[in-house]
């Protein structure tokens, strides 16, 4: 597997819009059959990268090869082998569920009969078969998203690009989408997705990059990233006080890193219970104590900061 040619290869990839640099020289390799994630806060450059991979946005600099081809020259040929699920659904609300698939299939030159057969299979797959004849407009957000995913599969693509596939969905709908995407992955379809949900990245991605300000700030599997950029456990301490700061000084030396938030203090430690015992040993009595495993979210916040990006 190690020698397999990457399906997507970017070197020093840059995208500028006027003076603004959206993507600032990234290197990416996506291998066949893997689920690859772009994580990052809003404005990190995830969507711009996805648009370049989708061959609808020419790179400003660097090289990009998709399926061994150059997107600026072979755009249509590459797009023929991609499935794209955009961030905002662009289904036709006036057409039926089935027509949305069959008309889209025609863009790929798929014969009408084959398009109908494939639409039926895909509607089964995304559990919309019983809605085949209904218009798209009244469908729920989750149903529309599943239909968009089905539409992205209509040309039996080599790579499926999913831009924030579960943003705006309720928990049930999200889990159903994840389950379908996981099944696709098992079938060997290469998935490339962007997300700012850590649970989504942990659920779906074999490998991911964390982007911030147009650059890649970390890369690896979810587990590797946690091991590399966080501790095994996190202790969350909440003190009843005007300011948590007053207590922060008394926690010095406990754990590898300490983070003071307005409402609590986070201690990044190897063993949570030992750290809690040490806290009590210093005569401190926090109002609440929570020991938990480090998550991708800790890594994400550590790497991209807690400042709100609007």
């Amino acid at each position: 597997m190690a020698n397999t040619q990457p399906l997507i290869q970017a070197r020093g990839l840059v995208k500028r819009f006027g003076d603004f640099t959206a993507v600032d020289g990234i290197d990416v390799d996506v291998r066949p059959g893997e689920a690859f994630g772009f994580l990052g806060p809003n404005g990190a450059g995830k969507s711009s990268t996805m648009r370049m991979i989708g061959c609808v946005s020419p790179p400003t600099g660097g090289t990009l090869r998709i399926l061994g081809k150059d997107p600026t020259r072979d755009g249509p040929a590459i797009r023929a082998r991609l499935g794209v699920c955009p961030q905002l659904d662009n289904l036709d609300p006036e057409l039926t569920v089935q027509e949305n698939l069959t008309t889209y299939a025609r863009y790929f030159g798929i014969p009408r009969r084959v398009a109908r057969e494939r639409a039926a299979e895909l509607l089964d797959f995304v559990q919309l078969a019983e809605r085949a004849g209904s218009k798209v407009e009244p469908l729920s957000g989750g149903m529309k998203r599943r239909l968009t995913i089905a539409r992205a599969l209509v040309n039996e693509p080599d790579i499926v690009l999913l831009d924030e596939p579960t943003t705006g969905l309720d928990p049930q709908a999200r889990h159903l989408v994840w389950e379908r995407l996981f099944r696709l992955k098992q079938q060997g379809v290469t998935l490339v997705l962007t997300t700012h949900y850590m649970d989504e990245a942990e659920q779906l991605c074999d490998r991911l990059v964390v982007m911030d300000g147009g650059r890649i700030v970390a890369e690896g599997s979810p587990r590797e990233l946690i091991e590399r950029h966080s501790t095994r456990e996190v202790v969350e301490l909440r003190f009843v006080a005007e300011s948590q700061e007053d207590f922060a000084g008394k926690l010095g030396g406990l754990g590898e890193r300490l983070e003071v938030l307005p409402d609590r203090i986070l201690l990044y430690v190897g063993a949570g219970d030992t750290a809690v015992a040490d806290v009590h040993a210093r005569g401190l009595a926090p109002a609440s104590v929570l020991v938990r495993r480090s998550s991708l979210e800790d890594v994400f916040l550590h790497l991209t900061g807690r400042t709100l990006v609007d």
């Binding site: 989708g54 249509p76 040929a77 955009p86 905002l88 662009n90 289904l91 790929f108 030159g109 040309n155």
Partner: peptide, 14 residues
Amino acid sequence: WVRTYEGQAATPVR
């Protein structure tokens, strides 16, 4: 609004 063109542009269509 419906963004039909965006959907079409993602396919081999020119």
